[in-house]
Design a binder for these strands. Structure first.
Lengths: 199, 199
DNA sequence: CCGATTTTGAGAGTTACTCTCACTTGGTAG
DNA sequence: CTACCAAGTGAGAGTAACTCTCAAAATCGG
């Protein structure tokens, strides 16, 4: 498959990574073909040519095959790398611009497919919402640090809640629309938030 | 055949309501005593003196014994009853005041216990987050209606997302603190949101 | 090449949930 | 009062997501 750019790891680790990727790929394909709940772990294991017990060594739950977002760590890295002069919200915007420029279009398309699946299946939706909630903690710490406040500052938390909420609304609203670009929608949402949410 | 069930006075219906309440009561008690995942449906059924299959006739899933919020419909009713002159956010505040005045203290205490449980158990947390997400749709429609906008208005949705996000942040932040009064925390959160989220 | 470590597969066990079927019980009409 | 119907119930079989254990196989370090 895709040749790793520079991974001087042992054969063991490469094989592991390949198996992991294979499981995820086959899982997503099967979910796409038959739906999430109609696909059993046994089917995924069979498709990836591993035993069912091995499946659970790679993914703690069936959900996790879909839930893992490869861009999450990239995004966090980019956010932390923003210049300190920027306000939290400007830093956020700059981070999104970074994504727009750095992520190749086809990878982004895969990611969109994943998002669509995740918002369509009710079982997965709730798991994703929980990830959003985790995002509040992350963003709150980020905002607190950037504005020189204590880590558990109430206003920083509140701000983070509003940002995540606005993003959540955008995603939930656009869940059915396969043509909506999440980045654009989030951009608009953040702008409206920054303007003080005029109604 | 009797086709006007406007009066819930049959012996059958009363028994049903009693069984339902008994299941829920024993479920919550057992969850409190042993933890949520350590409690099996069979145990709940045994405690409520019904067969396991009957359990699922009353609650589609084990989660649902905890997830049902008795104040939800009351809250929605109260929100809809607010005078039209109030801005969406003032209407919201007035609704919370209504709760504060109308809900008896002991019922509210039970509700707080339930909330604590729900935010502590990771399995339940994600389900609750999904309920929050549903809240966005509800609030968005509410705000749109109050400001004379189309039901799917972007800014109304966005506003709803921010409000729900802020509330979510408050709850998640106060999840571990059994002394925090949710109403007070939400009050502060909404005030900060209204002030434009200064950081 | 050999011994230690890691990874894997087979299989048994638990639990949430589904479905079917026969039985009982509450409500009602004659 | 009786006979009948529909609703509520329990027993039990079945499925699927996990969990755990143990032994075989692959990989690695020396």
């Amino acid at each position: 498959m895709t040749s790793s750019p520079s991974e001087p790891t042992g054969l063991r680790e490469r094989k592991k990574a390949r198996t992991r990727a294979a499981i995820q790929r086959h899982a997503l394909r099967l979910f796409h073909e038959q739906g999430y709940s109609a696909t059993t772990v046994d089917q995924i294991a069979a498709a990836a040519e591993i035993s069912p017990s091995t499946f659970f060594r790679y993914f703690p739950t069936k959900e996790d095959t879909v839930l893992y977002d490869p861009f999450d760590p990239v995004l966090i890295q980019a956010a932390l790398a923003q210049p300190a002069e920027l306000s939290p919200i400007d830093a956020l915007r700059a981070t999104m611009d970074f994504i727009r420029e750095q992520i190749p279009a086809d990878a982004w398309e895969d990611e969109r497919q994943r998002q669509l699946l995740v918002f369509r299946e009710p079982e997965l939706r709730s798991a994703v919402m929980d990830k959003f909630a985790e995002g509040i903690d992350l963003l709150a710490g980020y905002a607190a640090q950037r504005t020189g406040r204590p880590a558990d500052d109430f206003e920083a938390r509140n701000w983070a809640g509003a940002v995540v909420g606005v993003v959540m609304a955008a995603f939930v609203g656009a869940a059915g629309d396969p043509d909506a670009d999440p980045l654009v929608v989030v951009d608009q949402a953040v702008a409206h938030l920054e303007a003080g949410l005029p109604l």
